[in-house]
Structures are given as structure tokens and as C-alpha cells.
Design a protein around this nucleic acid. Structure first.
Lengths: 212, 212
DNA sequence: GTCTATAGTAGGATAGAC
DNA sequence: GTCTATCCTACTATAGAC
């Protein structure tokens, strides 16, 4: 990967951070990267192509940077704590919602849909593997679809990031409430074997009820 | 409100649906509304002002249209079911993510932040009142910050809508997983008074643990 | 209130010199 | 690979006729 090509990727993220998806262009990207505007098209063919590649690469790096922490998680509470830490560091780095911006643009920009979905998938896969590890043998694991739950968590975080961008205090409050939800799940998860069995059958009958 | 002014509001939503936040402009809006482009500026001063007003008005209408259903909800499960129904009908109407698009744009467009935050607040207020009603006297209500939880739920839905836009199957799966979470909360909420008390003290000690 | 016309700006993309 | 120059398109916003 040539130096310029790499600078353009970083410029794309910087432009996305600073100007948002509505203000990003070959010109703003090139300015952020400190290179000529025509090089966007020489190296990537189009702005969308560059944005997609940048999003995918950046996400891969962020996920890799947090892999150790995810691996060290031993409770749902810690998982959420890592999530909040991640959220805070993204906020500090200024790219609170690069992924969210891309998701919004991808709704109508077909070219962006695939790389954006792939990026979100990277996060949810990471979350899913932690969930598998944490919930092995618990009653929760039996009733919950872990891949689906992981996707929901990843998507929810994106929503929270967007929310925090327009209402900081509200976002903080929402995040704190999630913490309480995690406590609830954890408490259920730590019940004794007897209570567990009772809960399990209750859950099952509830699910059947819902299926009809 | 003159006819044209109203048509512009509808045109703004239509343009947002069809072209997304990156493709919306005074011209695309005017075309969708069937009026002259200059009228955007005559009636609203700027595109952003129009978008903000449109988002707020549309959300107010949607919330009002669903008020009866929210009021009829008697369990968390039903609440989620109303949420999914809402999600489906938004999808069918094509405005899957008008609010999400606005949120993304509002991250860097200061003019849009206030109306978008207000729109999201309308949804979370609705959710909050249902939660208050459903969880009155339950152990969950004692430990949970209901306003925060309602905001988290609203934000999570926005994230799920965005996710579904780029990965339909994944979004469906995530939504189904949420259903299972609701079952869990419900089961906990329906425990007998003895089990309830035990759970309550457990939750409290957990929260204290986390606070240190 | 609504239209046409237009000024001024910014963006995508390419051609061609170096 | 990188630059300049440029074409064409689309945009915001306003002025002025009706």
C-alpha cells in the first residue's frame, strides 16, 4: 500500500469526522489527507469506494486493538464496561460515529452497504464470541439466540452513539440504564441450580406462549 | 399552514426516504413536493430548517398515531411487539430510517441537532410512560432508571433500523433476540414475592459492588 | 405567494503535462 | 504517481417579474 493511498484512507475518516457524511467529498478528503484531489479517483475510482475501504480498514484495526480486552472479559458487566470504554475512547478520538455515518449513507448508497455491513459484522462477531464464552451452560444461553443478540447489541451501540451526538446527557443516562439491565441478567445467571431449573421452565412456557 | 408549506414538509420526507441524507437538497425536495425550488427558501429559509421542521412534525404524527397502541400495552412483550409492528410499518412506508438519517446529519449539522433530539425524545417519552405503568412495584423498577432505559430503547431501535437497512437478515435476527430478552425480564418480573425479595437484595448488592 | 433567471460556489470526474 | 487545468453538473440563495 503506497503512502498516498494510506493517507487517503486516513483523510477519509478525518473528513467524515469533521464534516459528517453530508460534508464529505473528494475535495475535503484530499484536503484532510494533504494530497491532490484527483488522486482519490486514481487510487479508488470513486469517493464511495474510498469511504467503504476506509470504514472497513478502520474497523478492522479498532476491533483488533480491542481484541485483548474482549478476551479478558469474564462477566456481562465487564463486557458492558469494555463497551462503554470503547464508546468513550471513540468519542475522545473524535470518531464517535464514523460507522454510524456510514450506515446512514449506506441506506441509499448501494455501494456503501456491503463494506458497512461487513464492518458492523466485525463488531458483532467479537461480541458474539464473548457471549458464547460467558453464557455457556447458563439458562440464558438456552433461550437466547446469541448471534442475534450480539447483532442487536452492536446495532444498539450505534444508535446510542448517534443519540449521544445530539443529546449528550440523554446518551449518558441511556448508557447507565443498560448497566442496570446487565446486572439483572447477571443476577439471573448466578442463581442456584434449583432456581435455575424453575426459571428455565418458566422461560420455556413463556416462549411457547409467544410463539402461538 | 398553507398548502405549499405542507407539501414541502411531505416532500422533505419523501426526498429523505428516496435519496437519503446525502442526496437531499432544495431541488430534490421541491421535485418530490411538486413545487418550485425557490419556495423552500421563501417558506423555511434554508434546507436544514425545513428538514428539522419536517422531522419534528412527522414524528409528532407518528407518535400520536401509535399512542393508543402504547396505551393498550400490558406487558413488556407487548411493548416490544408494538415496537416491531412500528418498525415493520415504517419499513413498509419506506421511511425506515428518516429519523436515523436526520440523526446522522445532526452530528455535524448544528441546526439539525435540536429538532432531531426533540423527535427522539418524543419516542422515548412514550416508551417511558409505558415502562412506568408496567413496572410499577416490580423489583426491576426499583433498580432501573426508567427514563434512561426508555432512551436506550429508543436509541437501540434507531440503531436496529440502520442495521436492517444494510443487512436485512441480520436485522431480523437481532430483533428476534430482543424478544427473548424481554421474556427474561418478564419472567423475573413475575416471580413470587419470596423470590422477588431474594432477587431484590441480590440486585442491590450487585449494584453496590459495581459502584465501588 | 409563486415563478423565472441567474449569480456564485462546490463537487465528480477526466485529460494531459510532467 | 502526481500535478494542473478543466468540463459539466448540481447546489444554495437571491433578485425581480408576475
Amino acid at each position: 500500500m503506497s503512502d498516498t493511498k494510506q493517507r487517503l484512507l486516513e483523510g477519509a475518516l478525518a473528513a467524515l469526522r469533521e464534516h459528517g457524511v453530508t460534508g464529505v467529498s473528494a475535495r475535503t478528503i484530499a484536503a484532510a489527507a494533504g494530497v491532490n484531489q484527483a488522486l482519490v479517483f486514481y487510487h479508488y475510482g470513486s469517493v464511495d469506494e474510498l469511504l467503504g475501504t476506509a470504514c472497513e480498514q478502520a474497523t478492522r484495526q479498532r476491533v483488533a486493538a480491542y481484541a485483548d480486552r474482549f478476551a479478558a472479559v469474564t462477566s456481562l458487566r465487564e463486557l458492558l464496561s469494555v463497551g462503554r470504554e470503547l464508546h468513550e475512547s471513540e468519542l475522545a478520538a473524535g470518531n464517535v460515529s464514523v460507522l454510524a455515518q456510514m450506515l446512514a449513507a449506506a441506506q441509499t448508497g448501494e455501494r456503501l452497504a456491503a463494506p458497512t455491513a461487513a464492518a458492523l459484522r466485525m463488531w458483532s462477531d467479537e461480541i458474539e464470541s464473548v457471549l458464547h464464552r460467558l453464557l455457556a451452560g447458563s439458562p440464558v444461553a438456552e433461550v437466547a439466540d446469541l448471534p442475534g443478540l450480539a447483532r442487536a447489541v452492536a446495532a444498539a451501540f450505534v444508535g446510542l452513539e448517534l443519540y449521544e451526538g445530539v443529546d449528550h446527557e440523554g446518551g449518558r443516562q441511556a448508557m447507565a440504564a443498560l448497566d442496570q439491565l446487565a446486572v439483572l441478567v447477571e443476577v439471573v445467571d448466578e442463581l442456584g441450580p434449583l432456581a435455575r431449573r424453575a426459571l428455565r421452565s418458566r422461560i420455556r412456557s413463556h416462549l411457547k406462549e409467544g410463539a402461538t
